[in-house]
Nucleic acid binder design. Structure first.
Lengths: 206, 206
DNA sequence: GAGTGATTCAAGCATACGATTCAATCGAAC
DNA sequence: GTTCGATTGAATCGTATGCTTGAATCACTC
């Protein structure tokens, strides 16, 4: 059997992306991959470690690219625009996604199932930390609380957008490129981030 | 045992909200509710029907309130503002949520686990249909495709916001009211909906 | 207070899960 | 050609799942 390890990873990525982690069994994975059950534990040790490997394999280059682009944006000297920072953070994901849609769907699932906090801590923290820093610089006037809430909104919109598309795209057949999705999303979010702060919110004290 | 049925519903709502549907077993539910396993199948027939009942019980009044408010906004004669339409759609949820946070979290989970399409079809279609109609009127200039994508972004942000809060709220202890969340979210989304359409998108043809 | 339908109980069903075991197999180094 | 570590195969472990069953219990009515 050629590249059993790789086939397990690919199939796990696909199935967990489609059905979620809890709802996908190892037996289903090995059946679809045409592989023996023991191979999973031999190569990965456990279902949990398998998931870790699936995420790590694809997220590593994405996050490195993110950091590189954020550095570039910050170093450019020009005044930081929200669009450019968002773009720097999202584009690497969309570029992976166009060749590899199931990985992005998996990311969405991870997030949805609440497995993200652990995964984020292990694999995404540096890139996200970098993003928050640069983004904060692009929005100096925004109260900290409001800033964090808007990041929260962004994460939700992003996860959902990675996971799926509106119904019409399924009807018309062509889902469109992730590039196009990201452009739309960046425009939408940028405006959201620049929205006036709603009245009645407490002024930042801390 | 007083009100076994009610206790099952409450506990299911709480646990499924916290852990997801697939990850929550009937045995866990009945253990926490202090109830017998057979009671679940006696009252609801199956795990799936239990979920249905859990959702229906709380969503029905919310959706009725939504429709009522949307009708009111549309009938007011004033030019429709995005804020007011969003507000009409979201507020009923937030008001339930303040007394009943676990239900809203459940909604987020349902959505996240991909159980939403079925649930939506059964229980949410009228309210959502009404919302789309009124919202469309508030945004007459927006191309249809862009409109649907922005609705998609909104759903993601909303589901995520219902599910949880940014980390700082967990640290500072006080999560704040849902009312406050919704105000922030409406401000954010309204600006997003009014954002200029990104260039390079195909002009609506159909 | 006997009878009746609604509800609860303890036990067990078949099935699936993640994990483990150990012999069989493979491939390259010596 | 033998040896040895890496990898796979088939079978099985203990546990948990959703669901079913039939007897026991409860709240009523007549």
């Amino acid at each position: 059997m050629i590249d059993t390890r790789e086939r397990i990873l690919d199939t796990a990525e696909k199935l967990i992306g489609e059905q979620g982690y809890a709802a996908t069994s190892l037996r289903q994975i090995i059946a679809e991959a045409g592989v023996n059950l023991a191979a999973v534990h031999y190569h990965f040790g456990s279902k949990e470690h398998l998931l870790d490997e699936v995420v790590l394999r694809k997220s590593e280059p994405v996050n490195q690219e993110r950091i590189a682009r954020l550095d570039l944006v910050e170093a450019s000297g020009e005044p930081l625009s929200v669009e450019r920072v968002l773009e720097a953070f999202m584009a690497p994901m969309s570029e992976t996604a166009d060749q590899n849609p199931q990985f992005v769907r998996l990311m969405g699932r991870m997030h949805a199932e609440g497995l993200m906090p652990g995964i984020v801590e292990r694999h995404f923290q540096p890139a996200i930390g970098r993003f928050l820093t640069v983004m904060r610089k692009a929005l100096p006037g925004l109260p900290e609380e409001e800033f964090l809430w808007r990041i929260h909104f962004m994460i939700g919109a992003m996860a959902h957008t990675m996971c799926g598309a509106p119904d019409y795209t399924r009807v018309s057949g062509v889902p469109g490129s992730f590039r196009e999705r990201i452009d739309r999303l960046v425009a939408f979010l940028s405006a959201g981030f620049r929205a006036p702060v709603p009245r009645g919110q407490k002024i930042e004290v801390e």
